[in-house]
């Protein structure tokens, strides 16, 4: 049962991160995932200080607020003419530094483990359960991530067309009257939700892996957005299952192993993808050359 809950949590994290991440990749703002996952730290700490416990809802709100603050700051820095990489770096490092200072300032009063925020420990997930009317409903994290997953799924289904057009051609989207900025912030909001729902189990930093690596793998395998979303989720789920068993084998951090598996899957796609893999392209080249010579 413990195995099942851990794998389920990992799969849900990987799944929801995976398909949100596709949009980040297509919009060429993949590093925003990294930025947001760091920048929500002060939000989490402040929510924690105000509410006094590790309730998921206040943290979620704090994280979303700071995720949006981060994106708004990046956007306004870009508008004043700062180049994009500098805007991202300056913003998230500042917010993260504020977060760390808050943690060190109040760490004596509250029990918020910095390592846990940053690295996460998915192995503890099965023991932190919700009980309702005396029945054990399963781990809290599963419910949290499940809710985030559902939320993102609903949002993406509802706004699929808008997300698609704004990702591929923002100018055209603006021309036909789609609120590009609002869609952008919706996406950033979803990333904040997913990040905070996941950070307890996989850690803020490894959320980045789950956001980008499955999406990038899927991006190498297909040219259709809908297929890419599905594939990214699949790759995420597969890497969480295999990652768990690798972790058991090595007796190491589960989230880290999931990342490694995701990385390996990416390398496989990079080499052997039917259309875009290096080795497949080499092979096709050789075959074409051979057929030309004969």
């Amino acid at each position: 049962m413990v195995d099942f809950w851990i794998i389920l949590t990992g799969a849900l994290v990987a799944g929801s991160c995976g398909f949100i991440g596709c949009f980040l990749i297509l919009r060429r703002v993949a590093m925003l995932g990294d930025a947001i996952s760091h920048a929500i730290l002060p939000g989490i700490v402040i929510a924690f200080l105000i509410s006094g416990d590790r309730g998921t809802l206040p943290m979620l709100i704090g994280a979303i607020v700071f995720g949006l603050i981060c994106t708004v700051l990046i956007q306004s820095l870009r508008q004043t003419g700062v180049q994009v990489d500098a805007a991202i770096s300056v913003t998230f490092t500042t917010l993260f530094a504020i977060g760390i200072i808050l943690v060190t300032l109040f760490t004596r009063q509250v029990d918020l483990d910095l390592d846990c925020v940053l690295f996460g420990e998915i192995a503890y997930v099965p023991w932190d359960t919700i009980t309702l009317f005396g029945t054990d409903l399963g781990p809290k994290a599963v419910w949290g991530i499940g809710a985030a997953f559902l939320f993102c799924l609903i949002m993406v289904t509802l706004f699929y067309k808008q997300l698609k057009i704004t990702s591929f051609d923002p100018a055209m989207a603006a021309a036909i009257g789609i609120p590009v900025a609002a869609i952008h912030y919706l996406l950033m909001g979803m990333i904040s939700v997913t990040t905070v729902a996941s950070f307890e189990s996989v850690g803020a930093i490894l959320v980045v892996a789950m956001l980008i690596v499955p999406g990038a793998t899927a991006y190498l395998l297909t040219d259709r957005l809908s297929v890419m979303l599905g594939l990214a989720t699949l790759v995420g789920v597969v890497s969480s299952i295999l990652g768990y068993y690798l972790a058991v084998l090595l007796d190491a951090n589960i989230a880290g192993c999931m990342t490694i598996i995701a990385g390996l899957l990416f390398v496989m796609a990079f080499l052997f993808s039917p259309k875009h893999g290096i080795l497949t392209r080499k092979w096709i080249q050789r075959r074409v050359k051979a057929s030309l010579q004969s």
Binding site: F119, V213, A252, M258
Partner: peptide, 25 residues
């Protein structure tokens, strides 16, 4: 590959860091 630089940065960052965490634990 057709992966853009920002995605490549994210991939390398997270996979290397993940590997580091695995080694650390």
């Amino acid at each position: 590959s057709r992966i853009k630089e920002d995605t490549a940065l994210s991939i390398v960052l997270s996979v290397f860091f993940g590997a580091g965490i695995v080694l650390l634990t």
